[in-house]
Amino acid sequence: MRTLVDIPDGLIKGLADISATEKKSRAELIREAIAEYLQKHKPTTVAAFGLWKDRKVDGLAYQEQVRSEW
């Protein structure tokens, strides 16, 4: 997908320097930066919601049972 993004001149200059050094296109560097950002900010707790939805155990009863073992 193509998208338009306004990037300040200072960032474009820095991007051009890295592009020349690494011999990669600006577009490739931007894609890599976005992928790295998304990986770093990937939600982790959201994936845990609903893990017990198919279990036939009452959550509170299970919690009390496990804690009684302490």
Rank of each mutant, 00 (worst) to 15 (best):
I7E: 01
K40V: 03
G10L: 02
V57A: 10
L11T: 14
T45N: 10
L38H: 07
E32G: 07
T21E: 15
G59Q: 04
G59I: 08
H41K: 04
I30H: 03
G10M: 01
R67Y: 08
E69V: 08
Q39W: 00
W70E: 14
L11F: 11
R31K: 07
P8F: 02
G50T: 01
K24Q: 08
Y37M: 06
Q39K: 10
D9S: 15
I18T: 13
V66L: 07
L29C: 03
A61Q: 07
I30L: 12
P43S: 02
S68P: 00
L15W: 01
K56R: 06
E22R: 14
E69H: 11
E22V: 13
L38C: 12
R55L: 10
I12M: 11
I12D: 07
R31C: 04
L38V: 11
A33S: 09
L38F: 10
I34Y: 01
I12L: 11
A47Q: 02
V46M: 07
F49D: 06
L15Q: 02
Q63H: 10
E64S: 13
E28N: 07
D17F: 09
Y62F: 13
E22A: 14
R26S: 08
D17Q: 12
K42T: 04
S68M: 02
E22S: 13
V57E: 10
A16G: 08
I30K: 05
F49T: 04
A35D: 08
V46N: 06
I30T: 11
S25G: 11
D9G: 14
K40I: 01
A33T: 06
E64T: 12
H41F: 03
K53D: 12
E22Q: 13
W52A: 14
E36T: 05
P8A: 12
R31V: 06
A20C: 08
K56E: 05
E36N: 05
R26G: 08
W70C: 13
I30Y: 02
A48L: 09
R67T: 12
D58F: 00
R55D: 04
T45C: 06
S25K: 05
Q39C: 02
W52K: 13
Y62W: 13
Q39G: 07
A27Q: 08
E32C: 05
V46G: 05
I12V: 15
Y62S: 15
T21C: 09
R67F: 11
L60G: 10
T45P: 02
V66S: 03
L60M: 09
I18L: 13
Y37F: 08
E64H: 09
